[in-house]
Structure formats: C-alpha cells, structure tokens
Nucleic acid binder design. Structure first.
Lengths: 211, 211, 211, 211
DNA sequence: TATGAATGAGTATTCATTCAT
DNA sequence: GATGAATGAATACTCATTCAT
C-alpha cells in the first residue's frame, strides 16, 4: 500500500483522514467497481464521517479522478521522458530486445505494486470521458514520441522490420498489455514463472509464432 | 440491428415489446454502461411501460445476462465446433496463415455487425461473475480444444514453433482481440484499411516485428 | 378441503377454475396473510391465468370478501336460528351445561374443519371495515337474540346468576373464542385432550376458578 | 402521546426527527395497519424526508419491531418481576381477588395509555414471526413464573380450585385480554363503567356465571 | 370463458451531497 | 478540519387491474 501511495504522490499535503479515504476508496473500488462502491462504505472503511469525504473531494467522481489520474501519469510517463530515451542513445541497450526487456520488466513491476490502481483504471476507463482524455493526452504526448525515437533508432540499426511506427507500437503495446492483463487480472492465481513469460513475450514480439 | 437480433436468436418466441426492450437495452447499455442505464430509461426508449421489462426479465441483471450470453456463445462457438476443425483436416487451409486469415476475417465481421453487444460484453465482464463463468466455460470447452487440434496439425507440418499450445493461444488471442478492440473501440473513427490491417496482424502473429 | 368448500356453499354455480382460485386463495391467504399474497401467486397455485381471477372477482378484495362472508354466516347463524332455540324449548338440554356442551362441541368441530377460513377471518377482520360490518350485523341479528332467549330460559330455571345478558354473553363468547384461538392458532401443536378441555372450559364458565 | 413515548423509553438517545418518525408511525400503523401504511406517508406525517426514516431504521420492518418490542416488554414484565411477587408474599393482598384487582387495574391503565401500541401489537403479531418470538420469550420467562408463584400461594390458602396452573392462567389471561379487547377495540365508544366492569370480570373469573 | 401481455401507479430502499454544529 | 443528521431525487421492482384475442 505504501508503494501505491507513492504513486499518488502528493501525500505530503494530505491530512491523515484524507489518506485513509484514498486507501479505502482504492481497496473498495478495485474490488467491486466504482458504481458498486458507495461513499458511505468508503467512509466507514476509512473510519471517517461521510461528510469528510466531500470536504476533500467535491464529488464522488472527483475522488475517482484524483485516484486514477496519477496512475496514468506514472504508468506511461516517467520511464520514458527522462531516463529511457537518453539511455537508448547512450547505447545502454545494445539490442532492441534489451530495451524491450528493461521496459517490460519495469512496467511489470510497476503494475505489480499498483495492481488495485491499474484495475480501477482499466475498469473505469470505458465509462468516464475525463479519464479517457487524460489517458489519450498522456499517451500521445509522452509514450508515442519516446517510442518513435527508439523505434527509429533500432530500425536504422536494422533490427526491426520496416513497418510504420504506429502499427508496430500498436502491436507491441497490445501484446505487452495483453500479457499483463492475463497475468494479473484474468489468471492471477496461476503459478506463473514471470521471468520466463517476459522472455517469451519478447520472443513473440520479435519473431512471432511462425518457424 | 437486424443482424444483431439474429445473434440473440430466439426472436421468434419474443413478443414485439420484448424485442423493443432488448434493442433499447443494447443501445443504451453499450453507450453508457450497465450502471448508468436505468430501467426507466430503457422502458422509455423501448416505448414500453417499466413494468413490462420485469414481466420478461425478473431483474435488471437478468436482462443483461439475456443479452450477453448469446454473444459469448456465438462469438466463440459456431465457427469452431463444426466447420473449422473439419476444414483444417480436409486441407482447406494449406498454410496456417490461411486458417488465421479465414478465422480473423470471420470473427472480424461478426464483431463488426455485433459491435454494441461486444462492447457490453467487454465492459461488463469485469463486474458480473455470472458472465465470467459463462465465458470461461465456453472458452474452455469449445475454443481451446478446437485451437489445440489446429495447432497440433500445423506444428506437425512444421509451420509453427515448438511452443506450448497454451502460450501460443494466449499470444494469438491477445493480438487478435487487441487488434479488434483498437479497431472498433479505441479508434473506431480512424480511416482503416481493414484488409491491410488483417494481413499485417497475421504477419505479426507469424513473424513478429524483428527482421 | 371439501368440508370447507361446503361452507362456501354456492359451489354449484362456480366453474372448475373458479373453485381452484378460491382454494388457492384460502390456502395462501391463511398462511401468509392477505397483503403478503399476490393475485399472481394465487393464479399460479390455482393453475389459472391472472386475468381469470378478475373475471370472477372484480378486485382482490372482492375475492377476500367472497371467501370470508360465508364463514361469518355459517359460524354464527345456522346453529342458532333453526335447531338450537327450538331444541332449548323442547327441553332437549336439561341443564345449561348441556346446551353449552352441544354448542361448544358443534362450533369446535366447525372451526376444526374450517381452520384456514377462520384464520383469515380473525386476521383480516381488523383491516377491512366491510367484513366488520357483515360480522356485526350477523352477530347482532342472529347470535344475540338466540342467546338472549336461551339465557332467559335458564335464568328462570335458576341455573344462571342474575347478570345482564349482554355481560354474560360477552364473558362466555370471550372464553369460548379464547379457548379455540389458543387451541387452534396459538398452540396448535400441543398434545390436546379436546374432550377434557371442552369440559374444563364449561366448568370455568359456570363456576370460575374460585373454590 | 408522551405517556406512550415513555414506554418506548430510550427517547433520550433519539433525535427530534426520529421521535417524530416513531410518533407518526404509531399513529398511522395503529389506524390502518402495517401493510396499508407506506413509508412515504409516515415521512410526510412526521415532517421528514423519506430517507431520514431509513437512516434510523434500516427497513420498514425494523421500524415496526422498534415500536412493538418495548410494548411487549413493558406489558408483561415490570409489574411482575419486581413488585408483584414480593407484594403477594408480604400479604399485601389478603385475597386472590385483591391481587386480581390490582393486576387488572394496573394493566388496564397501561393499555389505556398505550392503546395505539397495543393495537399494533395485536394486529401485527399474526404476521411477523420476529414479534411472536419476542412475545413468547417474554411471556414464558416472566409472566408464567410470576403467575405460578402467586397461584401456588393462594391455592395453599384454599382460595383457588385445584386446577393445573397452566389451565388457570390460560382461562384468566383469556378473560382479562378478552375484556380489554372488547373495551378498547371492539366497542371503544360504548359508555363503559370501567370500575364496575373490572369487578364483574373478577367475579366471573372467581365464580363463573352459574348460580 | 379464459388467456396472458401490458400497464402505470406505487413501494421500499439507496446514496451522493449539504450544512449546522 | 471534521462530524453525522438530514435531504430528496432516483432506483429497481411489485402488483392489482385491463383488454385484445
């Protein structure tokens, strides 16, 4: 939970009650969904009066957005913007596979320690346009450009097929997200060998299933 | 809409009002989600008294299940059980790519003409255990076995890598679903060249992005 | 049940479906009360369409009244009007105890074979003024006059105290009804020796508990 | 009404609105019965929003039970447990008639100032097993034992016949309840001479109607 | 006569939100 | 900041009753 609260970041400015509210909301909403979770339930679990929630978040949806927005930012942004791109050009990753490994590993661990938040994001994305907007902006402004730079770099190195970046990104993101959703949401209880699965995912991305 | 009602099949036994109810429910729920759609709204759009809904479906959830269950059955089952497997062994598809093409094309068209239903299925799957159960049963009983037979066949022909079927199925299904979700839900308004996209998806499944 | 249908009397003029409706209504209402029994439930148990009930009884309350009215009439009237009074004067009952015995026995057996009807009457009397009116009329017109004649007769014979008839009737009816309610409704499952209880009740009416 | 609210006792812990709710519920339910009284009606009469009812009582039935339970407790318990039994043995009541008089008088006054509550209890007892349970427990644990002690005492004094206590209690309770029901519910508007009626009831209990 | 689909007013209950303390 | 009583609009659902067939 403390990992996750880090994701929410501005904890410093939050009162203790507010922190309890957010914790309770994350737990309940990720378990039962936004519409099946009442503010009174959140208040009860947080050990707080109902009114207190609305002192900090004007509406229930404000609370949801306050929870979900940082996940979006943190899921996509930090990796790329600062370290990753520069690392690529510093030749930190000799092959595209190496970059992929570092990337998947990093996002995998993020997902693992923010699972409830990710669940909420996935489940509610469909119903709340505000969240969709944030997501699209973040993805377009940060993920795509970073990806583009990297892909061009490895294309020139001759490691990638000459497909449009957009197509490649879509294929790769789909595969990576699909892996994580299967791993953490569809079959979380299966006995996974995560390291092997990550490598297999990379192999699939690079070489498909054909022989 | 008439295409979609075919999916729901037992139209013959439905009263005209009942058909209107189902139509209205599909429209509204696919647009706004189950929890944002009230039964009074459905009744109004269907041109029916609210009580009429409950004469045909005892609860609101019953209505949802009645709508979603046939989609699951029709999305996974018919293609496989009868035609596909036998066609594979009759050598109707010389290469695995050919099978893939026929399969994706067929499911693509199904998705296209049942889009609202598919949307509902995807959005509500997370919240309704009843639907999950139906889905898992259908997938386990029909899709997996059919896939297994086909994969073994082309493996022996030397067209596929020697990966566990389960892994291969997961990768392929992920890629195909990911393609369709992008195509129909994330960016439905983009100017797609569907034929090209399908072929590219097949190429990705077979050979990845590496060169 | 056939005993009970006798009480409802005009069976001859009833269609078979109508008889089923009345039977079902008696069963359900006596078990669960009028307000907890829906017409659709009655229709289902009767094996009849919902509309059929309303073809025979314009409203649900009409059905109740049709069931309850004959009980009132039969519970109070027949015994008195014809046989009893004349029997009293024909010296069929030497002592008032003998009359009491014949009366209680007779009403006891009536209650026993019309238990569901009696239950309905007792439970619903409070809520339906129509029933109260019928009851009061029947009681005032038939029971009271018959009782009056009998009481006067045995008073003159010196067998009864010189209390106002009204008071005596109230005491006796209270005791008899109280006995039957205890016997059939409050503790129906107790292992009763009915003959002994009836005699004790008579002894109490005649001599109280003092020594 | 203030007398009655005393019966409900924990008034101190109730908010003003809650008190209004209970008052309104008692009025309406005793007039029209539980099933003919809607929560919206109660809210309106109480001058309160409908939701307020459910803030204090989770369900409509909870409200009924909250109203009825204290009546049961107060109708049977207090008189007996503490004062009465000890008074009997302190020879406060020389004859059984004296005890009877004190008892009936006391319960008569209680019934008089709690009439609506008593009405509700009588009318709803048949339909709500929860209430029946409370009633049976209270009666078995408190009323019966106290009665037993008193009856044994006066039996030894030779003032009572040698009948089983159970039978005697049943007869007496039946007579007393029957008197009160007639007095307050069946014919509340008759011009009663209460003192005379009580004495006549005692005379009946002790000596019956025979001469 | 009997049906059963349809009605629509009515029900208990929920819940996000407000506000006086 | 925090409380929690109060709100009232909205919700899923029920049910007696109607009516075309």
């Amino acid at each position: 939970m403390s990992d996750m609260m880090e994701t929410l970041r501005n904890e410093e400015k939050m009162t203790p009650k507010q922190i309890e509210i957010v914790k309770a909301a994350i737990e309940l909403i990720s378990e039962k969904g936004y519409y099946n979770t009442s503010t009174s339930e959140i208040a009860k679990r947080a050990g707080v009066a109902e009114g207190t929630i609305f002192r900090h978040y004007h509406t229930k949806k404000d609370l949801l957005v306050a929870i979900v927005t940082p996940v979006i930012t943190n899921f996509s942004a930090p990796v790329f913007a600062k370290k990753f791109v520069s690392q690529v050009f510093q030749n930190d990753y000799e092959h595209f596979e190496d970059l992929l490994y570092a990337f998947i590993k990093n996002r995998f661990e993020f997902a693992q320690s923010n699972l409830p938040l990710i669940k909420i994001l996935l489940q509610e994305l469909a119903f709340h346009p505000e969240i969709q907007t944030t997501y699209k902006k973040e993805f377009g402004d940060k993920v795509i450009p970073a990806f583009n730079q990297a892909l061009d770099f490895y294309k020139e190195k001759g490691e990638l097929q000459d497909l449009p970046n957009e197509t490649m990104i879509r294929m790769m993101v789909t595969t990576i997200l699909g892996f994580m959703i299967t791993r953490f949401i569809v079959q979380p209880d299966k006995d996974w060998d995560d390291e092997a699965e990550i490598n297999q995912t990379i192999a699939y991305i690079m070489g498909g299933v054909g022989s």
